[in-house]
């Protein structure tokens, strides 16, 4: 579930407000977007990869928040982790040409 919008990383572009399919965020007048409807989050991690500054953190639990702190997410280098695994950078798509899933299908 979405837990953190890092005010220090966020550049207030409001892309997350636009792209979240569950409409979880609200834009604010003079600051970072806020998590307005956390309960609606479907834990799809897509807001993270669309974020140009890796300012969002979605924890692994889908039923409720874990209460993880921003300091811990920073310390464990978890910001942007899913984007790096995919090959997306600064909110831009990339890496699908290196997807080795066809090898898995052969093994299957």
């Amino acid at each position: 579930m979405i837990e953190i919008v890092s005010a220090t990383r966020c550049v207030e572009c409001d892309i997350c407000v636009k792209v979240c399919p569950a409409n979880v965020f609200d834009a604010t007048k003079d600051g970072a977007p806020v998590i307005a409807r956390q309960e609606d989050c479907q834990t799809c991690f897509l807001c993270e990869i669309y974020c140009p500054t890796d300012a969002l953190y979605v924890a692994e639990t889908a039923e409720g928040p874990t209460g993880i702190s921003e300091a811990e997410v920073e310390a464990r280098h978890l910001f942007g982790g899913y984007a790096r695994a995919l090959g997306w950078k600064r909110g831009k798509a990339g890496g699908s040409q290196f997807d080795p899933t066809h090898r898995i299908r052969v093994a299957q």
Binding site: E60, L78, G81, A85, F98, D99, T101, R103, I104
Partner: peptide
């Protein structure tokens, strides 16, 4: 080898494990 392909090819599946 398969572990590597799974990690690289299905990165969303590993997000919960890595975070937990």
């Amino acid at each position: 080898a398969l572990q590597g392909w799974l990690r690289q090819g299905q990165p969303n599946c590993f997000v919960p494990y890595d975070r937990a």
